[in-house]
Amino acid sequence: MNLTRQAFLRLTGIAFLTGAARKLVAAVTGPRWAMAVDAAKCATQPNCTRCIAACHQAHNVPAIPDPRHEIHWIAKEPFARTFAAEEDQYSPVRALPAMVLCNHCENPPCVRVCPVQATFKREDGIVAMDWHRCIGCRYCMAACPYGARSFNWEDPRPYIHNPNPEFPTRTKGVVEKCTFCAERIGTGRPPACVEACPQKALVFGNLADPQSPLRALLASRRHVRRKPELGTQPNVFYFL
């Protein structure tokens, strides 16, 4: 191959610039995924756990009986616990359910502390994980102020009773959490929990699109986020 040094340098430069430009364009024009939880709608079905079941089935989340070793990607907690500092003892919403999951923070502490970049922020806002890179140091679990992460204290596979062959199982010794169903939204489907909710209490959408239903809801209804004072800028919103 006949390539002068000048041509080589020029090509390298162009390649770098193209890469950077594509990243920039994706960051500016691409979607920013977020979710809203309508607590009042959710409360109309007090015993419903269909979103949890759908999520855990889709992602091969093991059903470990020992609560110390429990793994969950999404859970149901009352406002009294999720918003303990905000909801005083007379608050009418204390008993309302708040589905808790990874907040896919704009400024995620878990990503900041991970020593191997096994958890990282995608351009579309999703805080994703590489389960083949995770060394299991659990620094991200200490850093997450929401308790969104679970660790595989033992081999999870014996506790996956009806495995989904479309999604990987994990091994012992790695951390896992909600991925906003990156594998589904990549093919245009909403997250499994959103699809499973009979009350349409979970709304998933694109914050970057001003016309999106999610943006319309956020603009018209009062909402809160968990521990906003920590500067993590959560992307999961709660309607009262």
Partner: peptide, 13 residues
């Protein structure tokens, strides 16, 4: 077996 043989848990990691 994994770190499950320790006394650690989801909350105290």
């Amino acid at each position: 077996h994994g770190l499950g043989i320790t006394g650690l848990s989801r909350d105290v990691t």
